[in-house]
Design a protein around this nucleic acid. Structure first.
Lengths: 224, 224
DNA sequence: CCTACCGATCGGTAGG
DNA sequence: CCTACCGATCGGTAGG
């Protein structure tokens, strides 16, 4: 495993500046940065045109690269898709967990918790530059079976955040439908907003959150 | 315009039976039938793999034709997609209108009407062989702008069926959210079922209908 | 509706 | 990360 790595002596990656036109920024290869640019470009295009209709050449161009260059960072187009989805689910879960942390020794009521879940979920889907999760939602079938299974754990974790909240609301009489189906229906209602929500017209994100809460919860239960 | 059409005397389309293997059914060209077969095959494949990932060769094979033959019935792959969507929306609207007809001199309550809309909508999406509307829902972006606008009228008509029902429920205090957003959220919840519903396991269609009604409507309003 | 085919595009790679 | 390129596939067509 730990073989001594020989320092490259022939054509070292450092001294090949003269050839090719100079780059806009300091250097074209600052690693993580370029990889992130590819991910963002891919997420944006996958969302807008779909995975199959997006060309690796499109992605390369959007990240200001040549057609073959994405394959320096990702093994294949599928690997790019998988990376987008994984990053999206990872971010979403982290944001939810952070938002659900109540300050100090206080706690959130189940109703407050659901509002947080809904609010963050909508922002993850509809907030500016958030293309990763929508790609995850609408391009699942483009993923090879093996990779779909690998992602299943992440989505399960994410959905698990909702279960205790919905269960509490159900027991308090504020949510009539069975918890399992309620979760699917509620997430569906929110996920569908990707198809119609327009930040520049119609309802705003807070209005949408209010409407969702009003639609799903009975107010004739305990509080409010 | 109205030139006299000469009867074909060379290689008339009738007398070329001997060549090629005999067809399963009476004849390979019974028009509407073959066209329908193509539509059904296309709808099925578009739903399963997506429009861009489906090959016209796939469709031809599924309809038991040769690779070039779909273009005898449809001008292009896009035209096939459009035809699938139009047929789907047309059927859906007709089914809803028929279902909403109350027998004799009786009438349905708004609550009953919503149940019908939900039930039929779910069947249109999830019933066996109903691939047309799901394609419409999930492949809209694959359509050229001009064609998308042509379809807009059909979807508007369909959604219009829901408005008076939701308005009545809203006024009766059984639906808290604003009607416009309520419609979008409810249809989203139902449309999303395409992604997870499995007729062979989990909830059945009637159970799903019940859950949706229980989730969306307040029962502390007037009746029930 | 089939046969035979074209032109373009696309994912991916070698080699630097 | 670029250059130059390959092999395969794909939508579509002519001509019957």
């Amino acid at each position: 495993m730990n073989t001594v790595r020989a320092t490259p002596e022939i054509a070292p990656p450092i001294a090949k500046r003269p050839r090719g036109r100079p780059r806009k920024t300091v250097d074209a290869r600052d690693d993580g940065n370029r990889r992130q640019a590819l991910l963002a470009a891919a997420a944006h295009l996958f969302r807008r045109k779909g995975f199959a209709a997006t060309t690796t050449r499109d992605i390369a161009a959007a990240a200001d690269m040549q057609s073959g260059s994405p394959f320096y960072h990702f093994k294949s187009k599928d690997a790019l898709l998988y990376a987008v989805m994984e990053e999206g689910m990872h971010r979403a879960k982290e944001r939810q967990q952070a938002a659900l942390q109540a300050p100090e020794g206080s706690t959130f009521t189940p109703r407050e918790q659901l509002r947080i879940l809904v609010q963050v979920h909508l922002d993850v889907l509809l907030g500016p530059g958030n293309d990763f999760v929508p790609v995850m939602l609408y391009e699942a079938r483009s993923l090879a079976l093996r990779q779909r299974k690998q992602l299943a754990q992440l989505t399960t974790d994410y959905e698990a955040l909702w279960i205790p909240v919905l269960t509490a609301l159900h027991e308090a009489g504020q949510l009539r439908a069975p918890v399992k189906l309620a979760r699917l229906l509620i997430l569906g209602a929110l996920n569908w907003s990707v198809q119609w929500f327009d930040a520049k017209k119609g309802a705003s994100l807070p209005e949408l959150t209010d409407a969702a809460m009003a639609l799903f919860l009975k107010s004739c239960g305990t509080d409010q």
